[in-house]
Design a protein around this nucleic acid. Structure first.
Lengths: 200, 200
DNA sequence: TCGCATCATGACACTTCGTGTCATCAGCCG
DNA sequence: CGGCTGATGACACGAAGTGTCATGATGCGA
């Protein structure tokens, strides 16, 4: 729907033009989503506004949801690394759940721009299409958490349930943080993890 | 892909033929999914095999996922009613989590056919498209659980995190049950809920 | 410096999901 | 028995996502 001027800046010819900057494209998409709405903005619109072809857009962002979720990658990556380190160190001395806490906090620590991230999360919370994606996007986290818990001596089944609950609760924490105005997501994450326990 | 004989049984004329039986259509779909795969079976295929038009199929099942998730409706309904009753009764004497336990067990109690339900859940677990749908399909459950917990005196934020964790863990329990061979899903559900706690 | 192979790019075509519109006719009510 | 109601399917459309392929800029070797 967004009628952009027929790309005058980008000469647009066939062949191999200047290399595409995925971050810039994601930025364009984010602005269009904010201005016209997620569903109202088509991949075609985003491609046009970015001065590239629709097919090229799909090369960098296989699905429309990736334009938003891609930006969460660094956060998930940082969180995952902490879990992996914890797993390698074996069972912690104190509370096993502290490993999950540390991972969640590590994610929060690497957010480059709170405002942009909040915008992304709000978009995710608002659109079922994007929210649903959380199940797939967070699967690697879930698996890493499971490995950590298992290494820490938690039973297999319990570890799985704990991970599912952990992912669900922390995602809800991020959503709640995004919905409000508080600058720091950490209290939300801690409160979410406080809801978990290791049975027996 | 499934090449059915060009519907000889159903006379197929325009106008208003015999009324459609949604359960029968969902059954046809389930069989086609089992035989050819979820993604490989198009809505067109299902409509043809059911002897109805594609548009009519969409009237009863707005999305492809509804063909599978629709069958979970009674389970969710039963579970939700228990939560609502519990909420009306106010704070329970004992463990607040027992309300969530009772709700989950009520769902398990109304399953008409364990085999069919297991097939549905396996399909859901296998296909990201269907699994993602859980977020939307379970939203009403989450809300009802939240109301129950709030009525039982749990703080607003805690209630939300607890609900997210509850939904995540119990969905994982259903998935684990479906993946295995055990007839009774109840132990899975109880183990999943054992992972939760009310902080403080 | 020049030529050439590489490979990202965009044009084109296609399948499928999901939606809107509309003429048609089955079954029910008067 | 005839008219109404509304469910039904034919047709058309927008957009997501995928495959194929000619093109030509880029960067490397000669």
């Amino acid at each position: 729907m967004p009628e952009e001027d027929p790309p005058p800046a980008a000469p647009r010819s066939t062949g191999r033009p200047a290399t595409i900057d995925p971050d810039a494209v994601a930025g364009v998409a984010l602005r269009l989503f904010a201005a016209y709405g997620y569903e109202q903005t088509s991949m075609e619109d985003i491609a046009r506004a970015s001065g590239i072809g629709r097919k090229s857009l799909y090369r960098y962002f296989p699905t429309k949801a990736d334009l938003i979720w891609g930006g969460m990658e660094p956060v998930l990556e940082a969180s995952g690394l902490v879990l992996e380190d914890a797993r390698k160190r074996g069972a912690p001395d104190g509370d096993i759940l502290s490993g999950l806490r540390a991972a969640a906090l590590a994610g929060a620590a690497v957010i480059p721009d709170l405002t942009v991230t909040r915008g992304r999360l709000r978009l995710i919370a608002e659109h079922p299409d994007l929210a649903s994606r959380s199940y797939a996007s967070l699967a690697p986290q879930r698996e890493r958490a499971r490995l950590y818990l298992t290494a820490a001596g938690v039973g297999d089944d319990t570890a799985r349930y704990l991970c599912a609950a952990y992912i669900g609760a922390t995602f809800e924490a991020w959503t709640r943080w995004a919905a409000g105005m508080a600058p720091d997501p950490v209290p939300y994450l801690l409160a979410a993890i406080d809801v978990l326990r290791i049975p027996h």
